[in-house]
Amino acid sequence: MRNTFINTLCDLAEKHDDIFLLCGDLGYSVLEPFAARYPDRFLNAGIAEQNMTQVAAGLAREGYNVFTYSIGNFPTLRAMEQVRYDVCYHAANVKVVAVGAGYAYGPQGVSHHTTEDIAMLRALPGMTVCAPADAGEARAAALFMANHVGPGYVRLNKSGEPVLHDASRPVKMAPGEFVPVKDGQGTLVLATGAIVTPMLIELRDNSLDWALWSAPFIGGYNRETLVSMSHRFQRIVTVEEHQLSGGFGSSIIEALSDLYATGVLRQMPKVERIGVPNTFISTSGTQEYLRQVAGLTLANVSR
């Protein structure tokens, strides 16, 4: 999905001649085509993410549509205050792109585990948070961000994810909305990011008649969508490759609770959250292995 996102951005940059790509000295074998096609709109800012983000804000105020690119925690948490103050407060047209969501860089250790970013980025006013589930969603995310004016965050897995959606047509997705993946009864599994596909496999392997939706955008949910979802399903199981505190599941509970408290919803659906139980995993392991260690499986949901 990383390559799809960057290749799509590369094609979009032909027509969108304001797109500027900054990288934090990462992107070997991925960013070269962009750099070769648009040398005037590419720059390696070095291993200095605070400055990269500040430079992005500076370029944006001069009219560029800037994308910063690095691994997981580096363009986000490492430069968090720059993202807050220089980008979000100034409503700068800067898109932060992080590769290696969750445990995508599993064996590389906790430095490379991206498991708190959703909580932190979604707290920022004006930030649009996007976590594509597969290459199709990544392509749609690139298209969305190229046209979106203002701060954005794209949380990409890495590579080799199975295709989730019908690859023959573009994925329709928009902030506030979910993308149905599988029909079902009673329980809705609402997942975000690359972990949506393993959830589909689990549902099929266990012949569970639950529905599955993908949530490519986090926060700012459409009220009608939440209401009809709550009427249709008795239980919602949120799934994310991210800490439980403040993450995607929290965002769903907050939104539902707000509707319940104001009387828009007459009944709160049960919400069970699958996520990293607020812990670091110090041991090495593949993405699949670490997901199991963290308990990111439907086996933990009551049947």
Partner: peptide, 11 residues
């Protein structure tokens, strides 16, 4: 200073 660098780079 970093934001200034971005502006200067654009210039």
């Amino acid at each position: 200073l970093g934001v200034s660098c971005g502006s200067a780079l654009a210039g």
